[in-house]
Structure formats: C-alpha cells, structure tokens
Design a protein around this nucleic acid. Sequence first.
DNA 1: GGGTATTTGTCCGTATGTATT
DNA 2: AAATACATACGGACAAATACC
Lengths: 258, 258
Amino acid sequence: MPPEPMYRQIADNLRQKIESGELSHGTQLPTELELRDQFEASRNTIRDAVKLLTTRGLVETRPGQGTFVVGKITPYVTTLTGDPGTGGDEEGPVYLATAAEPRSPVTTPPRVEIQEARGAGADELGIPGGASVVSRHQRRYIEGTPWSLQTSFYPMDLALKGAQRLFQVDNIEEGAVEYLRVTLGLQQVGYHDMIVVRVPDAEETSFFKLPEDGRVAVLEVRRTAYDANGKPFRLTVSVYPADRNRLAVLVGDVPPPQ
Amino acid sequence: MPPEPMYRQIADNLRQKIESGELSHGTQLPTELELRDQFEASRNTIRDAVKLLTTRGLVETRPGQGTFVVGKITPYVTTLTGDPGTGGDEEGPVYLATAAEPRSPVTTPPRVEIQEARGAGADELGIPGGASVVSRHQRRYIEGTPWSLQTSFYPMDLALKGAQRLFQVDNIEEGAVEYLRVTLGLQQVGYHDMIVVRVPDAEETSFFKLPEDGRVAVLEVRRTAYDANGKPFRLTVSVYPADRNRLAVLVGDVPPPQ
DNA sequence: GGGTATTTGTCCGTATGTATT
DNA sequence: AAATACATACGGACAAATACC
C-alpha cells in the first residue's frame, strides 16, 4: 500500500472537519498561508488539497476573500410526469424541496432560428439529417435567479402547413401543444423524456453563473412528444444546473413530492 | 476585458482540436514536454491546461503512458416508468443507447443490516427518526461491469409482522413487492422517484472505478413505494455513474426509447 | 476616490517519485 | 534495467480581486 500523497491527507483532514461540523456551512477556512504553517507543507500543496475539496463541492474559494465551506442549498424539484396530452410544453409544477406551494417560473420571449437538424435532434424527431427545423430558445427564471435554458425544435413542415406562429418571436400563451392541436389538429398522445447528465457548455456556464471549470454538471431533459400516429412532432431540451435541481417522477396513485 | 490566462488559452486550443475531430477519440495528445515546447509555456502551466480538460471530461491521463482523448461511451438507459403495482423492486428494462434488446443486470446477494432511520430516509418512509429499518444493500453488474449500487429500506414493522424473509441474506426471487403482497396483503398502488445528482462517496468511487477526485458525478434515484392507504412502505435508493447512464421516463402512448 | 493590506490566482523552475513500456 | 511520461512537492515572483481605512 503506497502512502497517501500529502495533499490528499490534508484534504481528508479538512473534509473530516467539515463533515463533523467543526467547520460549519458558510464559515471561512484558515488562509492558505495559515494552512501552510499548520500542515507544514508548501502553499502549492495546500492549494492542491483545497482544489480537491473544491471539485468535490465542499468548499469554494473567493479571490481576495478566502476559502469558505459551501452553504446548503434547497434545490428546486421539477415533476416530469403529467398529462400525456398536454405535458411537453413545459414540465409539471416546480417546488422548492422544503416548501409545499409550487413556484412560478418566468420565461423570456424566445429566440427563434431556422436550423438544420443534426445528430441526436434529427434522430429524435424522426427526420433526415440536414432537414430544416424551427428552434425556439428561451431562458427561464424563478424568483429572479436563472433556473433553466429551454430549446424546442419543430419540423419545418408544421410551420409551413399553417402553424405560422412558430416563427413569431413571442410566447405562445396557450402553450405550443394546444396551439398545434387547434391549428393543425395535431393531437399529442404522450411523450418520453431522456435524462442526461453532462458538463455545461459556455452559454450555460455564463447564464447559470457556474464555475469556469466544469465541476458543476447540468441535467439535460430531452422531451420528445408524439402524435396519434406515433410520430414525433416536437423535441424540447431543458437544461438545469445539477447542484440546485432535482427531478421527480410520479407513477400511480401517490402524494405529490414533499 | 482582461486577457484569458495562458493555461485557459492552451486548454481552449486543445479543446477545439478535439471537438473539430483533429484529435479523434482515443488518440494520444503530445506529451507534456512536447506541449511545453509547442506553446512555449512551463510544464506546470501545461498541466493546468490538461487538468481543465480532464475535469471537463474531454481527456484522461494515464501515468507512464500519456494523455488521451476520451473515447465515446454508449450509455445504458434505464426506464423509470412502469407498472404502478410492481415497479419499485427494480427499475424498468435497461437498454444500451444504441441497441434494441434490453440488457440483463446481475444482482449480488444482499448485505442485510438493521439501521436507525436518519434524515432523508426517515422522512421518505414517514417514520420517526431513530426508528429501526431493515436495509438490504446490493451490487448490480451488467455484462460483468459494475452498473449500480442499490439499497432498499423497509420499516422494521413489516419484518416483525410476518415478512421474515426481509432478514434473509439472499435474493427474493419473485421480487420483494410481490413477496410483501402475498405475505402481508400489502398492495403497492404507486411510487415516486426523486432524481438527484451528487458527488460519489468513497464506496461508490471504488466500486465504479471512478476517478479519485469527484469529477464524475453519480445519479441517485430515490424510489418511495406507497400502499393502498397512501402510506410509504419501502424506499429504494439506486446509484449510477452519471457518465455512462441515462434515465428514461415514458408518459402516455409512446414507443420505447431507442 | 485612492491607497494599502490581505488573499487567492497565475506562472515559472526544479527535483524527485511512481507507473508503464 | 532503462527510458518515458505523468504525479507530487517545493520555493519564488507577480497579478488580480477584495476589503478597509
């Protein structure tokens, strides 16, 4: 058994103090120079130890201030299961993990683009790669804080066959699914969600104010909605920061999530 | 606008070469000393750049060998939605993201413990903190590779009221939900899943062979099963490595996930 | 607003250890 | 056994962010 490297021993020592509560949420750690003297190591070794705690989400460093134990956050809970005929526009109700009343997300007007379907998106919509799709991209906030990024893709056909409002740069108040049903007689009979965890891209990092290294993952929910013929007609991709969001799935007769 | 630090510029440069395909999956990057000469930086700065790519999951380093672009992995897909009356023992079918046929997980005999319910678990089971629960912990493999860790918690009542097999250290072949129904007349009417992303603990890191720093997250699915009285009687916590697993949720009449 | 002290961030050079081929 | 490549550890210098007077 090789001995543990020094920076790991130091990190474990600090981790234990945090988990035992000796260093509680929000409190400041000793400065790097103080830790250097305490552990009789070089400042760079201390920094390696602190970096380990940082990637594990236990502490955060603030330039010019110090290193702090991260505070507990109460995550938002989004319910994925809902009415097969209407869910798909957006998810079900959103709760704070500790509260009973649902929260109301605020959605910005969409950025509308015509794009070529490529890769995964084309597969899920069941259209050939390179075909055109309408993309509607929105930012969503809860109580002023960035909460999710959402992009919906529709086959170009739908818009050309009468659903012109898909091109318009404003929210479809009654919901896009309802609009398509009224306009084109397109009846949604169900949807499926694919849940993926991945590293955020540059836009997500800046919108959610995530750390520049990719240590905080994002949850991506890819929702494909199907019509009565069993053909997909809509793909909605929602992205949430994984450290402050949870997803709920309800099956059968169960009380709502706490 | 402050200029980007050098190690970030180098990381971006390499990232671009990876994403453009100039450096394809599995290929080896130049060694740290070669990169040091190419970018005219010190080896430590090169290492900072590579570490950034490592936390973002783009490359992996192998001591004595070199740095390599990570190969694409085809994730397993686990379906969370199923029959309200039976789902809960285990999840729905498991697919390879590219294949049509479901895979068969292999489950080890459980490690059975009597524990005090604490914190989150007690809340979800609706029992007072400190009450006893039966914990059954299992490791699951697919095609020989570690796939998930699963722990089920039952209130001690159930076992004392006649479901003694909960204490036994072997698999309940017909499924624990079916066993409880036959033995105690306990009818499951539904369940809800809470999906959480978090950093792996020490056991998970070693079982899944994850990197020692916590850069690969795990998906935790907490399934609470309810009986006909609307009371929870079982909590199953399943943990999956987030980089090789996806979750599917099906609502309404939709084809199975591809 | 300006200046100064404190604290973390970046970058360098060097030496030695460990894993792999 | 030797060579190669990444890992650990040290020490030093300066930059950038923040807080405080």
